[in-house]
Structures are given as structure tokens and as C-alpha cells.
């Protein structure tokens, strides 16, 4: 769609701008919560973890605001076409961002739980790398939203496969550690959940990518996304190699 003209009703234009700003702000906060949770886990910093957990509240509050504003706008403006899609997109993206905030909070909680544990370097490195990838995806898709760039969103959508692949390899690695020494099970379980949370962040980023694509083109992405997460079937093959 070409450049949008201004609304005849200026207050309508302002409301839409406000909605966009709130999404941008919420996105920034989600990035921050996520980044800090990784850092807290890596540095084993309970204080940072605690403040991160608190910051998630702000994200929740923003989501409530966005939802309320969107409902009021639908009732009062009866939005059509691109405006309608903008409001629907705001609703959907805010839901995804709220979930991402929760996942970040959850990682921060696990950071607190594993503070006293010895952490194997290599595992932490893998987790960190996966986190950076997810964070990069989130940044990229939020930029795609702000720029209304469907192609960038599509690139994010395809790239999620990499996170899935990393999750698979981390999953195997963690299982190996646990089998080596049962004393690792506690830590590894926390890290496994952490990895799963990061993988979920990637999924929400792809959701947002789908929303951005819909916002711009008015139709859903029709391509079949390559699915990288195969851990649901992994235990079978693990049994074969382990025993």
C-alpha cells in the first residue's frame, strides 16, 4: 500500500499515533526485560533478576492500556480497511509482547534459582547465543512493524528456524549432561526451561511478523514455514543412542 494520507479527523490520527507509540514502548520494554533476564542468568545476578521481574509489570500495564484503547477506538471510530488492520495489529502484537515479557520474567526467576549452582561454560554459551538470536529477531520484527516493512517481517518469519535448530541441539546437550551426572539434573532442568522460553520468544516474534505482514498486505502469509523444532519426537531417538 502506498503512503497513507492524513485523516480528515485529526483526533483519529492522533489516537492511531498514540497506539503505535504504545506498541513501540512496549516493544522496547520487552527487549529490555528479555536482555536483562539473559544477563542475570549469565552473571548469576539475583538483584538484576529481581528488578527485571518487577519491570514486567509495566509491560502488563501497557497491554491493558492498548487493549482498552483499541476497544474504545473500534466502538467510537468504526475503523475500516488499513485503520482496522492497524488496530487489530496493535491488539495482537501487544498480546505477543506481553507473553514475551512473561517469558523474560520466567527466565529471570530461573536465574535466581540457579544462582548457587556451578554452570558449565559451554552450555551457558549456547544458551546465551540462542538468547541473542531471539533478541535480534524481536528487535528486527519491531523495526519491521514501525517501518511497516513486510519484507523484513517475512525475513524474521523464515529465520525462526535457526532458533528452533539451536533449541534442538541445546536440548540434546542438556540431556547428555543430566545422564552423565544426576546432580546436574536440577540445574539442567532450569536451563532447559530457559531454553524453551527463548524458543517461545522466537515463536512470538514470528507471530508478530505474521501480524506485520497482514497489516501491510491485508492477507496472511501463505507460505509454509519450515518447522525446526523436532524435540517432541527426540526422546525416541535419544533412547536409541543412549542405551
Amino acid at each position: 500500500m502506498e503512503q497513507q494520507h492524513e485523516h480528515i479527523v485529526r483526533s483519529y490520527e492522533e489516537e492511531l499515533a498514540l497506539l503505535n507509540n504504545k506498541i513501540a514502548k512496549m516493544g522496547g520494554l520487552a527487549e529490555q526485560v528479555l536482555g536483562q533476564s539473559f544477563e542475570a542468568l549469565e552473571r548469576r545476578d539475583p538483584d538484576l533478576a529481581a528488578s527485571t521481574i518487577n519491570e514486567d509489570e509495566e509491560i502488563d500495564e501497557l497491554q491493558r492500556e492498548i487493549e482498552e484503547q483499541a476497544v474504545v477506538m473500534i466502538a467510537r471510530r468504526q475503523p475500516m480497511a488499513y485503520d482496522l488492520r492497524q488496530i487489530m495489529a496493535a491488539l495482537r502484537i501487544s498480546t505477543d509482547l506481553e507473553r514475551i515479557g512473561d517469558l523474560g520474567k520466567n527466565i529471570a526467576k530461573r536465574a535466581v534459582a540457579v544462582v548457587s549452582e556451578q554452570q558449565p561454560k559451554q552450555l551457558m554459551l549456547g544458551l546465551k547465543h540462542m538468547g541473542e538470536l531471539a533478541l535480534g529477531q524481536l528487535k528486527e520484527v519491531l523495526d519491521a512493524f514501525i517501518e511497516r516493512d513486510a519484507d523484513r517481517a517475512l525475513a524474521v518469519w523464515y529465520k525462526d528456524e535457526e532458533i528452533d535448530a539451536m533449541y534442538n541441539s541445546l536440548f540434546r546437550e542438556l540431556l547428555t549432561y543430566m545422564m552423565e551426572d544426576p546432580r546436574n539434573i536440577g540445574l539442567c532442568t532450569h536451563l532447559l526451561f530457559g531454553a524453551k522460553n527463548i524458543e517461545r520468544v522466537g515463536d512470538h516474534a514470528t507471530n508478530i511478523a505474521e501480524t506485520v505482514y497482514y497489516l501491510v498486505h491485508g492477507r496472511a502469509i501463505t507460505d509454509q514455514r519450515p518447522k525446526g523444532d523436532t524435540t517432541a519426537s527426540t526422546p525416541v531417538s535419544m533412547k536409541r543412542t543412549a542405551v
Binding site: I8, Y12, M80, L84
Partner: peptide
């Protein structure tokens, strides 16, 4: 289609209440 995803920019401008 017209009210969710019109093809022509002029239609879009009209149904969303913008200047064409």
C-alpha cells in the same frame, strides 16, 4: 474486501476518511 483490504488507494482513503 472493500472494507478490510481495498486495492485502490482512493478507495482506501475514502473508506478510512482521509484526504484523497
Amino acid at each position: 474486501k472493500i472494507f478490510t483490504n481495498p486495492t485502490d488507494q482512493r478507495t482506501q482513503d475514502y473508506v478510512t476518511g482521509r484526504f484523497g
